[in-house]
Amino acid sequence: MSIAAAPTSFFYPHRHLLGIEGLTPAEIEGLLDLADDAVELSRQVSKKQDSLRGRTQINLFFEASTRTQSSFELAGKRLGADVMNMSVGSSSIKKGETVIDTAMTLNAMRPDILVVRHFAAGAVELLSQKVSCSVINAGDGSHEHPTQALLDALTIRRNKGQIAGLTIAICGDVLHSRVARSNIILLNALGARVRIIAPSTLLPPFADRLGAEIFTSMEKGLEGVDIIMMLRLQLERMSGSFVPSVREYFHFFGLDHEKLALAKPDALVMHPGPMNRGVEIDSAVADDNRSVISEQVEMGVAVRMAVMQALAQQLPNQ
């Protein structure tokens, strides 16, 4: 089958995908519908499709990433694009001008799609203003990571039928998480009730105004939830600066079976990866049958295919 037929029923009106912010619920659902088709394609023996044939996709990563970059690479290849990976060490890029210079240089090579990850919030948008191709935000600082939110939504929708009406807990280092920010916006847009569970030191100020109910204890926050999204806690943040220790963090905020039991019996456990087993998630829970962590990875490729497919509609054909 082909997902080339899908665009007739769905038109994505933007040149870029810089964030979930600004997307309408219909656009989000449209992208998820496209992604459903991409899942089917990806599960066939022949996964190749040609809607991006002749197009050039550059993955420009200012911050190291294995999963996201390979997911985008695979998505592009399955759609027939020529994919180039470019990793820029964060030490060589320190000033805004340099980001733009890099963008201008790449732009001169006439790519069609630029997939950009940058360690600074807003850097991808800045870059998008300077290039003539489509830009996909693959994560900018602690701001947004739209394809992650879309793949999470796709995973939830395929397991639960719909997102509206679900209670979804996002747990852990929300303060530094672009995944959390994109998810909060998306899940609210599709009618879910979002909870954030984290120690106060890992909550963004005024977190309650982002569209989520705030909890500082897992016991209270996990009660009756349909979905538990765990977030990764960076090692350098758990030695006394934001939380005292791994041991304490795991004891109070790590997802183990005891805490999981407070959620609904059919609750799903999600994690954007890479996991720190024994820090934010107990190994047994990560491998539990309620865990859809591997499925998320599969959905990641499909969602990225869908996004590039949608953006391709906007690319000039002449």
Partner: peptide
């Protein structure tokens, strides 16, 4: 409240 009372890293207040 901080390790070794050094005023730098918080202790395991919960535990």
């Amino acid at each position: 409240m901080t390790r070794g009372l050094e005023g730098e890293e918080m202790t395991e207040i919960g535990l």
